[in-house]
Write a protein that binds this DNA or RNA. Structure first.
Length: 849
RNA sequence: GGGCGCUUAGCUCAGCUGGAAGAGCGUCGCCCUUACAAGGCGAAGGUCGGGGGUUCGAGCCCCUCAGCGCCCACCA
């Protein structure tokens, strides 16, 4: 026994953090079988910048389950990954170092970012290889900082099991996964209209798109009819796409336009003859009921373009600016090509906004505008990280067949156990709303390259229909460095030779394989067999449609199974005013600052008191409550463990009653934890604990000092230690530092490797009756209350307590009489049978104090 | 437009299969009590969003309305 005189929370993190690392408390034992293992698909945090307080919350939630499972005797596989692959990192590197990637530059082996000169403050172009080096360098620094924070938080991660999403194992798994989809015909390349971000200059997938309400204007534009009838008026918010107009469309049931269908009209300014067509997607209620179809203004245009087999006239370039006119060329008919091209010259090079402003002026001058523009607010699609609306641009991309699997993926979603259950609905609504195959290629640099080359024909043109892929054994491969099978690098770029696919994969193409990557898919089949499918995917709700969905999708395709059986979905952390935290609002609470002000157990307490699936506000008061609880555990433990412990059994009814009550708490706490209701577990344990210190400790204190002889003391101290032993283990997942500290005073090994309490181990409480504990605590509370109301010290004697209650409850109270009198300085207790329970307290007159 | 969640004390939230309204914080008051004053004890405070209904009995079940938040949607 080694109890300090003045227990304190100071320094616990450092001491036990080091001890856990040195002793390997959380090291995973890979000799265990699948049945003995609880495996967690830890979210790899984005290694760019600083961690969010929401991460602190949700990673704590995961750690609670990890610790609970470990204490239940499961071998917990709890790895850590770093998501350093992707656009977030690229952006951060660009800003941090003031560079931009220019893939046309050769690799500079002597490149040193420290000596970088930045005239005019413009980003300095660097080669792809140098850029990737910078990405790796910056993410390594971030990952170190993240690890330190997570260690401080007390995550019971096995830090020897880490991966990065740009590491060799991740690249190998991503490329292997791609190749297998490719060989099955599930991954295909196509030159097709795709959502495109004009700033990042890359394709984006449906899952990365979000709607934003922005200001716009409806312009009413008149098209002349070729037959000379009244002009046809349409409304558009994007008049700059007029040169890309390929048809007008009305609903086939719309009587106003039925006679026009099949006729030809001329686009204003450009005088391009376009047909009037009919399609049921045209909404008679919108605008004038007839719309222009452009290639491409939005995804509806794509639908119409496909369904109606319309021609293609693209005017928006990949950087978002308009192209010069090509009227007069094949496919670019115009009744006045020279004028059309002159108009285009006014617009060429301008972005959408500027081109819009100019074309409205031109339309006005030409008399084609009807009325004043109508100001509107309307939802427009944006890339989730982007600043300008997405364009729809045709380009060659890799896709994974997704739409064919909608029903199967809905079934997989039902197969999962969702915590909370209603989160399953979000998944389902996403899957039901899928409308495009997954675009997995990105025109970026810091990512996993496609393991693909294309042969060049005699004219040096790539044959995209004949992609060359490597053997799985050669992965990972970078087609920009390596030559494909049957070629040598001298043939790169030459007619008859080859080129490498320049694109990288969507970051989710890698992240969707985190269970496989962490479990050693194909690289370590033995380990994989012990871990996959995993047990738990913890994550936040904002990435259900991306990370969760894609992971389910990949496991379905590759393993014909779910990737895990349970999904635990955390909510968000809001600022103290319940507003979403965001950098632009300046209300972000930085985790490192929180840890400067509060100890780790206290922060965990706050996180643990939030349920899964519901947003929680950052509440420093609640953190302080956690700190108080931790201090209380120290002090109460000190009291329990410094009592002399004479030989003897636990025999006193009050002691047995307390333990019987605790047994019920163990049952309730365990059931809640099994149901992923960690907040409820904490609540019932904490509630019992405060009663334990306020009531039970006070009740038996005199007895522990020997007031009623050695047998009475032995019973009390025995019960106190039994309860403390159980309570420390119940608190261990929540407050790992303080429980470890107390455990070290009197127990061998780690509380975190001890077993989770069971009702069965409290068999000693079999003779106990929880109600005895309850009535005794109530009576003591009544005495305390009267003394507080009388504004006197708790030491003031009580002449008489009159307890009125049902006979059987009074009988139970009698069992605690001696302890009660000692704790309350009560001289006599009178019992009266009554149907109306009450406790009357007669204090001694003041002069007696 | 469709879906989900929420609405209980000033604040943050519990209230399990319907059985006499709860906790913490904040406020106020009291107490140096040999585990704990960077403590402890106690008090005040609620027409459980509105309106119907089922029931002996509704915070909980059903219908309906409203507000807030989120997800999804082909948004010309």
């Amino acid at each position: 026994m080694n109890v300090p005189d003045k227990p304190s929370l100071e320094g616990l993190e450092a001491r036990w953090g080091e001890w856990w690392e040195a002793s390997g408390t959380y090291r995973f034992d890979r000799t265990k079988t699948r049945e003995q293992i609880f495996s967690i698909d830890t979210p790899p945090p984005t290694a760019s910048g600083s961690l969010h307080l929401g991460s602190v919350e949700s990673y704590t939630h995961t750690d609670l389950m990890a610790r609970f499972q470990r204490m239940r005797g499961n071998e917990v596989f709890y790895p850590m990954g770093w998501d350093d692959n992707g656009l977030a990192t690229e952006r951060r590197v660009q800003n941090y170092f003031g560079v931009r990637c220019d893939p046309s530059l050769p690799h500079d082996p002597h490149f040193d970012v420290a000596t970088l000169e930045r005239p005019d403050d413009d980003p300095v172009p660097v080669s792809r290889a140098n850029f990737i080096d910078l990405c790796a360098r910056l993410t390594a620094e971030d990952e170190k900082a993240f690890e330190n924070l997570f260690r401080l938080l007390g995550l019971s991660v096995d830090w020897s099991h880490t991966y990065t999403t740009i590491g060799a194992a991740s690249r190998r798994a991503s490329q292997r996964g791609f190749l297998r989809l490719f060989h099955r015909g599930l991954a295909y390349t196509a030159d097709a209209p795709t959502m495109w971000d004009v700033d990042f200059k890359t394709a984006v997938a449906q899952a990365e798109i979000e709607d934003r309400e922005i200001d716009g204007e409806y312009h009413r534009v008149a098209f002349d009819r070729e037959d000379g009838g009244d002009p046809v008026e349409i409304e558009t918010s994007r008049p700059e796409l007029l040169p890309a107009c390929v048809a007008l469309v009305a609903n086939p049931t719309d009587a106003r336009y039925r006679s026009l269908v099949g006729s030809t009209v001329l686009t204003p300014l450009f005088r391009v003859p376009v047909p009037v067509v009919a399609h049921e997607l045209a909404d008679p209620e919108k605008g004038t009921g007839i719309a222009m179809i452009c290639t491409f203004g939005d995804v509806t245009d794509v639908t119409w373009w496909r369904a109606l087999r319309l021609p293609t006239r693209v005017v928006v370039r990949r950087d978002g600016t308009l192209a010069p006119g090509r009227f007069g060329e094949p496919g670019w008919d115009s009744r006045d090509a020279a004028a059309a091209n002159a108009t285009m010259a006014e617009l060429a090079g301008k972005g959408a906004k500027q081109a819009r402003r100019r074309i409205v002026e031109l339309l006005g001058d030409a008399g084609s505008l009807r009325g004043a523009p109508e100001k509107i607010r309307h939802p427009v699609k944006f890339y989730e990280n982007g600043d300008r609306p997405l364009e729809v641009i045709a380009s060659r991309q890799w896709f994974v067949k997704t739409l064919d699997f909608r029903d199967a993926l809905l079934a997989r979603g039902r197969e999962l156990r969702w915590h909370p259950a209603f989160m399953g609905a979000r998944y389902a609504s996403w899957v039901e709303g899928l409308n495009q195959d997954w675009a997995i290629s990105r025109q970026r640099y810091f990512g996993v390259p496609f393991p693909v080359w294309y042969p060049l024909d005699g004219a040096g043109e790539p044959r995209y229909d004949q992609p060359i892929v490597p053997d799985e054994a050669s992965l990972p491969v970078d087609p920009q460095d390596a030559a494909p099978p049957g070629f040598s690098n001298e043939q790169r770029g030459l007619p008859g030779g080859f080129i490498g696919d320049p694109d990288v994969m969507d970051t989710w193409a890698t992240s969707s394989l985190t269970p496989q990557i962490a479990a050693g898919w194909e690289d370590d089949p033995d380990l994989f067999g012990r871990l996959f499918p995993m047990d738990l995917r913890p994550q936040a709700h904002d990435i259900i449609r991306t990370w969760l969905f894609y992971t389910v999708f990949r496991a379905h395709l590759e393993h014909d199974s779910v990737p895990w059986t349970d999904a635990a979905i955390s909510g968000f952390v809001l600022d103290p005013d319940r507003k979403k935290m965001s950098k632009s609002k300046g209300n972000v609470v930085v985790p490192t600052e929180v840890f400067e002000r509060h100890n780790a157990d206290a922060v965990r307490y706050w996180a643990a008191s939030a349920r899964l699936g519901y947003d929680a506000a950052i509440d420093e008061q609640q953190i302080k409550v956690g700190r108080r609880l931790a201090i209380k555990i120290l002090n109460a433990s000190k009291f329990v463990l410094t009592m002399e412990s004479p030989a003897g059994d636990i025999t006193e009814p009050v002691d047995l009653a307390m333990l019987a009550t605790l047994r019920g708490v163990v049952h309730e706490a365990t059931t809640a934890f099994e149901d992923y209701e960690h907040a409820k577990t904490l609540d019932v344990v904490e509630r019992f604990f405060w009663g334990f210190t306020d009531d039970y400790l006070e009740l038996v204190k005199q007895r522990t000092y020997g007031a009623r002889g050695p047998a009475g003391a032995a019973s009390a101290v025995g019960a106190l230690r039994e309860a403390l032993d159980v309570l420390l283990r119940l608190f261990a997942p929540f407050l790992p530092y303080v429980t470890k500290e107390v455990w070290s005073w009197w127990r061998e090994g780690s509380v975190h490797r001890s077993h989770w309490p069971t009702p069965g181990e409290l068999a000693v409480a079999d003779g106990g009756d929880p109600e005895t504990y309850e009535v005794a605590a109530q009576a003591l509370g009544a005495v305390r209350k009267q003394k507080a109301l009388a504004k006197v010290s708790l030491k003031v004697p009580v002449l008489r307590v009159t307890a009125r209650d049902a006979a059987e409850r009074l009988a139970k109270l009698r069992l605690a009489e001696a302890d009660l009198c000692g704790a309350g300085s009560i001289q006599a207790i009178v019992y009266e049978d009554s149907a109306e329970p009450s406790i009357e307290v007669e204090l001694a007159p003041r002069e007696q104090t």
